[in-house]
Nucleic acid binder design. Structure first.
Ligand SMILES: [Mn+2]
Ligand SMILES: [Mn+2]
Ligand SMILES: [Mn+2]
Ligand SMILES: [Mn+2]
Lengths: 218, 218
DNA sequence: ATTATCTTTTTGGTATGCCAAAAATAATAA
DNA sequence: TTATTATTTTTGGCATACCAAAAAGATAAT
């Protein structure tokens, strides 16, 4: 398998198994990588061969220690590049993901560590995602999704789980950027949409959007 | 054809046809890209199909206007990255080529122009090679190879045509870096090796090495 | 429990990029 | 010019990465 192919699979499996213990379904991987399910079945069989994952057919996949190491390595590269593009090269948080998707495959430890050093070894990327250190150690957070927030409570926006330009532009428009403080005003009964206060203005958030926003109770 | 494959061919053809008018042989391309001659024949046929080159069988190839444009674009990316790695990220001139070889395939105009701007839109890369501007305009030099230098004359080192670590380290050892002034002391008759003075020290240069050093008469 | 539906796997097939060996062609030396 | 050598092309094949459609398996609904 080409390194790029391996890396894209492992990264995806890591990202989809949030706590990194859950088993990941073929379909989710196929969706995320825009691949045919048949292709994914093949790919997973090969990754199992290579001992990067444990793959039980018709059940799911999870990373081995070796797979986890590789996944964290490429996630580190991706997030360091995103941070460098945003902080040092002036790109918007909605632009960096697509470029990092390619830059991440350039595998040069010295390069990534140099970028990290220039940035002061950051722990979070522009979307609030934690950046693994050189040895694969990664910050574990107890943040929740906005869709799980409770009425009347105050929260701080800590991250997003969707990196698309459309979504991030939409958030920016309502000042829902990393670090922003919000208060949950109401949660509509009939569709679970959330009305919150951000910078004194009322914002209506759909359940789908609320699922992609990560917050911390304050 | 994959973009990366196309780019590697076009860049190579450009680099091998120095003045950009000469026709390039299949073998030279095969050597440079470490490919089997059979593979190159196929590749060139496809590039001809795509109108990036004019390929006359058993004769050679040369770039079309479209091919030249693409070639200059990737050469720009390569050389901008080399310069950025050396100047901004602290890599040695012997290290940058290998990394740039991968980074060059990340095709994002805004990114390259940003890097170029930070560097002050440089015209030469760390090896003395000219960097095309955004529209493909490239400096044309009248430098000569050290192997063509005349006895007793004074020259300045302007560039190298070999980017391997071994060669560049060897040059560094003798202070033969870009900008260094040299004087040709003797040219040995029996093997054409050159004895020159650089920083008051005598250095003996083999014909093979002299062929990879670019100088300007001063 | 039996359908109906969704998910995964198998099967057969395509496109790309590569190589080894043989055949054809061109270049060079005798 | 003819032979020798070098280069290029053709042929047949391999590996990877993918997909569409059919078959098998698992889940959910009645
Ligand atoms: Mn990627
Ligand atoms: Mn990110
Ligand atoms: Mn180079
Ligand atoms: Mn260079």
């Amino acid at each position: 398998m080409r390194p790029e192919t391996i890396e894209n699979y492992l990264k995806t499996i890591y990202n989809l198994s949030s706590n990194n213990t859950a088993v990941v379904s073929n379909q989710k991987i196929a969706d995320r990588l825009s691949l045919n399910p048949a292709t994914v079945t093949e790919g997973l069989r090969k990754l199992h061969e290579l001992k990067y994952i444990v793959y039980e057919k018709s059940y799911g996949s999870r990373l081995t220690a070796a797979g986890s190491k590789l996944a964290l390595d490429i996630i580190r590269r991706h997030r360091i590049w995103e941070t460098y593009l945003a902080k040092e090269l002036g790109f918007g948080w909605d632009e960096v993901h697509a470029i990092a998707e390619e830059l991440e495959h350039v595998n040069n430890v010295k390069l990534i560590n140099k970028l990290a050093a220039i940035l002061g070894n950051p722990i979070y990327d522009p979307h609030g995602d934690p950046i693994p250190d050189e040895r694969g150690k990664i910050q574990k957070s107890n943040f929740i999704k906005l869709s799980e927030a409770k009425i009347k409570w105050n929260y701080k926006v800590m991250g997003v789980t969707d990196h698309s330009t459309t979504f991030l532009k939409y958030l920016e428009k309502h000042n829902l950027i990393i670090g922003a403080g919000i208060n949950i005003k109401t949660i509509e009964d009939f569709d679970n949409s959330i009305v919150l206060i951000c910078q004194k203005k009322e914002v209506n958030i759909s359940p789908k959007a609320a699922d992609c926003i990560i917050v911390q109770s304050i």
